[in-house]
Design a binder for these strands. Structure first.
Length: 558
RNA sequence: GCGCCCGUAGCUCAGUGGAUUAGAGUACUUGGCUUCGAACCAAGGGGUCGCAAGUUCGAAUCUUGCCGGGCGUACCA
């Protein structure tokens, strides 16, 4: 593609003495393989009819690209359509499984996502953000980045006070030894129930509310005193560990493990110190007893970093987190993935850091996604416990899959759920329908897994013939080869935009192209077997590679 | 009020560095398995691209203004 693009640029330069970078787009197969509209762009500057410009460019390109191009034609108001030769198409297809962009070559990248709070339950949104974050991390890694996947969460704060309140009720006071009576497989659900009880008490019971506020302060004090031994400390640390065990287990299950957790407690001191330091230098200001950053000069709003009681808010903690990540990794790029309700909040935090560490914010990218809603547009409400938990999403997928296939298949339901979450472009809220996600038909994860398994099955029958050279292509083969060769361009686009859904769109089109090919092209036993086996191999490899970027497995057989 | 995100077929979504006739899936109606895995393929109906102006040879895409939805807007995260 780049070769052709350069040839077009060179031709424009030579023919019209104009420096212009031509944009090459993929076009419908009936028109060719690539198209460009430079002739229309040039029409104004050259004061010539676009078709005339297109004709002379096309003629020159036919000459200079005679090795790689089958035909260069002019269509409509002045589009130049370029059809590749079979050899060029085959060369691109051959390179497709391994040809990756080098956008992040030799760069250290920190990817932060998921960010659940200890002492709370993982909900559907956590699967979504984890799956999206993992896919983006995979894409960056494919482009050469050294990716460190990290996770940030609140091990201190009011929600901890709420949970601890109910925990103490359950234990009948500060009796850490009673925790041992809770079997390990019930830890997560027990703590989730405690959080719900604590939240309800906080809202309904004034006395409890006061206790919870006090417990919150006591938790902060544990860190100030480095207290691991008092009964209260033992309960806190044990429950905190239960949370991290539960997170680890869940991430392992869905295949999105993390290298490091950054608990809030570990970054808040750095955050508060940094903010105080910069308060003296005038970056932050005191206002009504709190420390704030005034965003209005930058079109943002003012936010509190240290509250009037001297405690750090999330803003100061995030300052600490970013500083800590910098100290730990000296990253070239830091990608933070959160819900879009944090978009403007993060803009303020980053703008404030830009005042004293501009190199750090320049290297930071904040990507935001929407909420997970259920089919029918019902929003998942937080608190109270009437939420869709992460396991509920997987259970629903499992139920639906079982109803359709009659068996349990963890890889199938993970493939289904992940694909359902990755298919839409990041940004808007997503509507999740468990039944549709595990559907065996249409644009779904199982369709792609099936399409892969089917190809591998053909290859098993075709034995080891699959590395033969391809000489020429018939129409069905050409369509498939064309689609396979597009893969590197799609990955490049996904990397440039940091948008994994481009890969979903492509893989589905690829699988469709294969299924059409398969429909009327016999592979094993056909005179063209060698060529076709080679194409099927490339197809299956690309499909597997693409699913891998999405974090979806591609089983050899289903 | 101000700011950010979003609005494409009944439903769920691609397409938004401008481009050839706006595409998929699903649902509905049909056709195709004695043949490499039919979880597949093919055909059909279904769209004022929220509305209106503007820029252009050309706008779902860019600009402006409206309408509708979500979120944010100082001591929550």
């Amino acid at each position: 593609m780049e070769e052709i693009q350069q040839a077009v640029n060179r031709t424009i330069q030579e023919t019209f003495n104009v420096d212009l970078s031509a944009e090459l787009t993929r076009t419908q197969e009936q028109f060719g393989d690539y198209a460009t509209n430079v002739a229309m762009q040039l029409a104004g500057r050259l004061q010539k009819p676009p078709r005339e410009i297109a004709e002379s460019l096309a003629a020159a390109l036919r000459e200079s690209l005679s090795d790689t191009v089958r035909d260069v034609s002019v269509a409509g108001p002045g589009f130049i359509n370029i059809a590749l030769s079979d050899q060029a198409l085959v060369a691109m297809a051959n390179a497709a499984p391994t040809n990756k962009p080098t956008t992040f070559k030799d760069q250290v990248v920190v990817a932060e996502y998921s960010d659940p709070n200890p002492f709370k339950v993982l909900h559907a949104g956590h699967i979504y953000t984890s799956v999206v974050g993992a896919a983006i991390s995979n894409i960056i890694a494919a482009a050469g980045g050294e990716v460190h996947r990290v996770n940030f969460g609140g091990d201190v704060g009011l929600h901890v006070g709420k949970t601890m309140w109910a925990v103490l009720q359950e234990l009948g006071g500060e009796n850490p030894e009673k925790l041992q009576e809770i079997p390990s497989e019930r830890h997560a659900e027990w703590m989730a129930a405690c959080y719900v009880a604590g939240t309800n008490a906080y809202e309904d019971d004034e006395a409890a509310k006061a206790v919870i506020i006090d417990l919150n302060k006591r938790v902060y004090q544990l860190f100030a005193d480095n207290d691991h031994d008092s009964p209260f400390a033992q309960i806190y640390w044990t429950c905190r560990q239960w949370s991290y065990d539960y997170f680890d287990e869940f991430y392992a299950r869905i295949g999105t493990p993390f290298e490091k957790y950054y608990p809030e407690s570990e970054v808040s001191t750095l955050g508060i110190n940094t903010v105080r330091e910069q308060l003296v230098k005038g970056v932050y200001k005191e206002s009504d007893g709190a420390v704030v950053f005034e965003g209005e000069p930058y079109g943002l709003h003012t936010r509190v970093f240290i509250n009037s009681q001297g405690l750090p808010t999330y803003e100061a903690k995030d300052v600490g987190l970013i500083m800590q990540k910098w100290q730990d990794y000296h990253f070239d790029r830091s990608v933070v993935i959160t819900g879009n309700e944090q978009a403007q909040y993060m803009a303020v935090v980053l703008k404030s850091i830009e005042q004293f560490k501009p190199e750090l914010t320049q290297a930071t990218t904040h990507l935001t996604h929407g909420l997970v809603k259920l089919q029918g547009g019902v929003k998942m409400s937080s608190r109270k416990g009437n939420i869709l938990r992460a396991v509920d999403v997987l259970d629903a997928a499992n139920e639906a899959n079982k109803a359709a296939t009659g068996r349990d298949d963890e890889q199938a339901i993970l493939g289904a759920v992940k694909y359902a979450f990755l298919r839409p472009r990041i940004g808007a809220d997503i509507i999740y329908d468990p039944a549709e996600s595990v559907s065996l038909e249409g644009n779904s994860g199982p369709y792609l897994q099936y399409a892969h398994a089917r190809a591998r099955s053909v290859l098993r029958k075709g034995q080891a013939q699959a590395d033969g050279a391809i000489a020429d292509l018939d129409a069905a083969e050409r369509s498939l080869a064309r689609k396979i060769g597009e893969y590197p361009e799609v990955v490049k686009k996904a990397v440039d935009d940091l948008l994994p859904h481009h890969i979903c769109t492509y893989l589905y089109e690829l699988a469709q192209a294969f299924n059409r090919f398969y429909e009327h092209a016999k592979v094993v036993g056909d005179p063209r077997e060698a060529t076709r086996l080679r194409l099927v191999t490339l197809y299956a490899d690309v499909l597997k590679d693409g699913l891998g970027l999405l974090g979806i497995t591609a089983p050899e057989q289903l």
